[in-house]
Design a protein around this nucleic acid. Structure first.
Length: 160
DNA sequence: CGATTTTGACCTGCGC
DNA sequence: GCGCAGGTCAAAATCG
């Protein structure tokens, strides 16, 4: 899982299907040439049979959930992106002395997850990985939030 | 008092 | 098959 590939660099992407209007965060990040990292990992099936219990048929639903990660330089782990997140786990990863936190969107029917991880090498850098697309708008004003995020983050140089 | 966090147990994929 | 590593569950604790 450490093999992150840069899918969006300093070049406008050909508008991937998951960049909906809902996902204002990613859209804005893309607009400002944010260095967005992506990890294309096919979603495992236990999430599916965990959320939908009566789905016995396997392989029928090829729910591929895209994951988008970006690095920010921030003092705080949790960046307020306008959504409400409920923490559901925390694990310590190898080669990292900082634990990784797991969050889930509290909105009903919206199973977007995100992971927050701090680099052990540079503890000022926080890696936030989003998984999935929100199926609902944010509750707060997005512009304010986004500017708030921008004030907290710092673009990480591409090609590390 | 309901919602959220904490935290260890549990589960699963993968490499040996 | 076993053990590790990462991800999730869930009950208790805590918060607002």
């Amino acid at each position: 899982m450490e093999n992150y590939q840069t899918i969006f660099t300093t070049q406008p992407s050909p508008t991937p299907p998951l960049l909906h209007d809902h996902n204002l965060l990613h859209g804005h990040l893309n607009k400002i040439n944010m260095d967005v990292l992506g990890c294309s990992t096919s979603l495992d099936d236990r999430v599916i049979h965990g959320e939908e219990k009566n789905k016995k048929k396997k392989g029928e639903k090829k729910v591929r959930r895209e994951r988008y990660a970006f690095q920010t330089r921030s003092q705080v782990d949790i960046l307020d992106d306008g959504y409400r997140w409920r923490k559901y786990g925390q694990k310590s990863v190898k080669n990292n002395r900082f634990p990784r936190s797991y969050y889930r969107c509290t909105h009903q029917g919206c199973n977007v997850k995100k992971q927050v991880q701090r680099l052990s090498k540079d503890e000022g850098v926080v890696v936030t990985t989003y998984e999935g697309v929100h199926t609902h708008p944010t509750q707060k004003s997005n512009n304010d939030n986004f500017e708030h995020i921008l004030s907290q983050m710092q673009i990480y140089p591409a090609g590390f």
